[in-house]
Simulated scan of single mutants.
Amino acid sequence: MRSPFFVPNATAMRFALNAMQVRAAKSGVGQYIHALMESLLEVERNHHFTLYCSPQNVVNYRFSAPNYEARVWGLPERARTFRLLYEYSFLPGELKRRGYDLFHGLSNFLPPRRVCPFVVTIHDLTYYVQPERCPPVRRRYWYAMTRRTVDVADAIITVSHCSKSDIEHFFPHTKGRVHVIPEAPHPRFRPLGVARDCSGLGAAGIDFPYVLFVGTLEPGKNVERVIRAFDAIAQDFPSHHLLIVGDRGWLYEGILAAAENARAASRIHLLGHKGDQEVVELMNYCDVFVFPSLYEGFGLPPLEAMACGVPVITSNRSSLPEVTGDAAILVNPESIEEISEAMRRVLSDDAFAGLMREKGLARAREFSWKKAAKETLRVYQLVLGNANS
């Protein structure tokens, strides 16, 4: 395979990427890092990649490519405050000592001292756009880190034009340095083509039709309104259940209360965290996927559901219309009535549901991690060209 950086007789470059800020459990950012790293190693065989990992998350990033190293560095995850201070005090020296050609911070932040060309991926600015979604102490920390990061970054990668607009709004001096590289569904998200009773769901006792939500249980994901919207139509669809998949996040208690107090409480199931393949199966066999989030930098779950051939209801705000195009039913996320009526339409109109499945599959095919990896390498090339000019 011809390298995107291919120059005859050129010396191989050494790129360092940072995954240390990501927890051991695969979050959305963790999924991004895994998929991007996997694809970078697929499309680029000449240059060398070192991924800095924490002792806890390194298990998620073991790749067998000869031009890849997972380097465990820093302090344990449980020592969060000291770990961050350690990373940002000593990481620049580590990068300089090992002589990297470029450093890429994959999770919003960069060290304060620039010792080689710096690239950062800023996934979103939720804590600026909707500050009420973040605990105050964490928000102040993120504000300070983001200001320093955009000042030292040679290039900023973000995942949607919506996020680019937010970055340039809050930090006008970044204009000209922000590059949009969309995410994509992992290839495992696809129609499985087997009957549900032959899948793992049958063994798990899920033998009923259901509506599905996947995401962190926190107010910004709008899960309470999903519950209330389902409750509003539950009596008209007595065989359907609502399955809610995701870890508990900040201020999750209201979501638990909404589920417990619903009239259809016996048909509302909070399943907690599920593994990658379990989520694929759950998406494949749901009748509709509902994701009316209040704000997303990209919003990958709706695209993953589309890739599985499932009708999608999502928000008409932030990046979600940009990502889903005309292949999803867009609703006002603050209107329980709009969410419930969208559910009703999909569940009662087979022809419409079939049309949305076909549109979703076509839309999902427009996104590719291989394309994202190649565009990321082009940003590296641009930054290195500017550094050497």
Rank of each mutant, 00 (worst) to 15 (best):
Arg2Asp: 10
Phe5Ala: 09
Val7Ile: 15
Ala10Asp: 12
Ala12Pro: 12
Ala12Glu: 09
Arg14Gln: 13
Arg14Tyr: 05
Ala19Lys: 03
Gln21Met: 12
Val22Asn: 04
Ala24Tyr: 02
Gly30Phe: 07
Ser39Glu: 10
Leu41Val: 08
Leu41Ser: 08
Glu42Gln: 15
Arg45Ser: 13
Arg45Gln: 13
Thr50Pro: 02
Thr50Gly: 03
Thr50Asn: 02
Thr50Gln: 00
Cys53Ile: 01
Val58Pro: 00
Arg62Phe: 01
Ala65Ser: 15
Pro66Ile: 14
Asn67Gly: 10
Glu69Arg: 13
Ala70Arg: 01
Ala70Lys: 00
Arg71Ile: 03
Trp73Tyr: 15
Gly74Phe: 07
Leu75Trp: 10
Pro76Ile: 06
Arg80Pro: 01
Leu91Phe: 15
Arg97Pro: 00
Arg97Ala: 15
Gly99Ser: 08
His104Asn: 03
Leu110Ala: 09
Arg114Ser: 11
Arg114His: 01
Val115Gly: 11
Asp124Pro: 02
Asp124Ile: 05
Glu132Lys: 08
Glu132Asn: 02
Cys134Ala: 10
Pro135Glu: 14
Val137Leu: 14
Arg138Met: 14
Tyr141Met: 14
Thr146Phe: 00
Thr149Ser: 12
Val150Lys: 00
Asp151Ser: 10
Ile156Gly: 07
Ile157His: 07
Cys162Asp: 09
Ile167Leu: 06
Thr174Asn: 07
Pro182Arg: 06
Pro182Phe: 10
His186Ser: 14
Pro187Glu: 10
Pro191Met: 03
Leu192Gln: 09
Gly202Cys: 13
Ala203Glu: 15
Gly205Cys: 10
Asp207Ala: 13
Asp207Leu: 11
Phe208Arg: 10
Tyr210His: 07
Gly220Phe: 04
Asn222Met: 08
Arg225Leu: 08
Arg228Trp: 14
Ala232Tyr: 00
Ser239Ile: 02
Ser239Pro: 03
His241Asp: 11
His241Ile: 05
Glu253Val: 03
Gly254Val: 05
Ala257Ser: 12
Ala264His: 05
Ile268Trp: 09
Ile268Gly: 09
His269Tyr: 09
His269Ala: 08
Leu271Asp: 04
Glu278Pro: 06
Met283His: 00
Met283Tyr: 01
Tyr285Met: 05
Cys286Leu: 04
Val290His: 07
Val290Leu: 05
Pro292Trp: 13
Glu296Trp: 10
Gly297His: 05
Phe298Tyr: 14
Leu300Trp: 01
Leu303Glu: 04
Leu303Arg: 04
Glu304Cys: 01
Glu304Ser: 03
Pro311Met: 05
Ser318Lys: 01
Ser318Phe: 03
Ser318Pro: 00
Ser318Glu: 01
Pro321Ala: 14
Glu322Arg: 09
Val323Gln: 04
Ala328Asn: 03
Ile329Lys: 06
Ile336His: 04
Glu341Trp: 14
Ala342Thr: 13
Arg344Gly: 12
Arg344Phe: 14
Asp349Tyr: 02
Asp350Gly: 08
Phe352His: 10
Leu355Pro: 04
Met356His: 03
Lys359Gln: 08
Ala364Val: 00
Arg365Phe: 00
Glu366Trp: 02
Glu366Thr: 12
Ala373Thr: 10
Lys374Trp: 00
Leu384Met: 13
Asn388His: 12
